[in-house]
């Protein structure tokens, strides 16, 4: 029995995980309100080994200028060495670094949105693909964890 167990687990793992498709735009909704969702998102990013480098307000100044809007932020994250390496070797990626996830309130629920990092790959640089695949895998997990609340 023991001998078969790893095999069984593998099959189970495959059948559960093959549902994720390569979507260009990653999106998720969570039941949490904005402050709670923001905490969970940042924890989840850190737990995947990234540093949250900055939380940028997008609604900045909107309310001051008389527009009515709900909370909206972009969370930037990365790993220092990875961001340095990518920006040195692939300058076309510079505007997309560090990585980011947008988070905004919709009533008492919260949405997160990000572009799939696989879009930053380029046939001319095959060595980029595994790097971005790893980032994609981490982001898919972060998004799934938000959905699962």
């Amino acid at each position: 029995m023991k001998k078969f167990l790893p095999f069984l687990v593998l099959i189970l793992g495959l059948s559960v995980s093959n549902q994720s498709q390569a979507d260009d735009l990653l999106m998720a909704r969570t039941n949490r309100d904005f402050p709670e969702a923001m905490l969970k998102l940042q924890d989840s990013i850190r737990n995947h080994g990234y540093t949250v480098s900055r939380v940028q307000r997008v609604d900045i100044g909107l309310t001051h200028s008389g527009y009515v809007t709900d909370k909206y932020r972009v969370v930037f994250f990365g790993k220092a060495d990875l961001v340095t390496r990518l920006s040195n070797n692939y300058p076309q990626l510079i505007p997309y670094l560090p990585f980011k996830i947008a988070i905004f309130a919709e009533g008492d629920e919260t949405l997160i949105v990000a572009a799939n990092p696989l879009q930053l790959t380029d046939k001319a640089y095959p060595e980029l693909e595994p790097v971005m695949k790893k980032v994609e895998r981490d982001m898919l997990e972060i998004f799934q964890a938000m959905r699962d609340d």
């Binding site: 909107l62 527009y67 909206y72 996830i101 919709e106 949405l111 949105v113 990000a114």
Partner: peptide, 18 residues
């Protein structure tokens, strides 16, 4: 940033704040 453009863009599609 330009507030009017920002407000306009978010009204057309809130996801674009990304």
């Amino acid at each position: 940033c330009n507030f009017q453009l920002l407000n306009n863009a978010l009204a057309v599609d809130p996801r674009v704040g990304l």
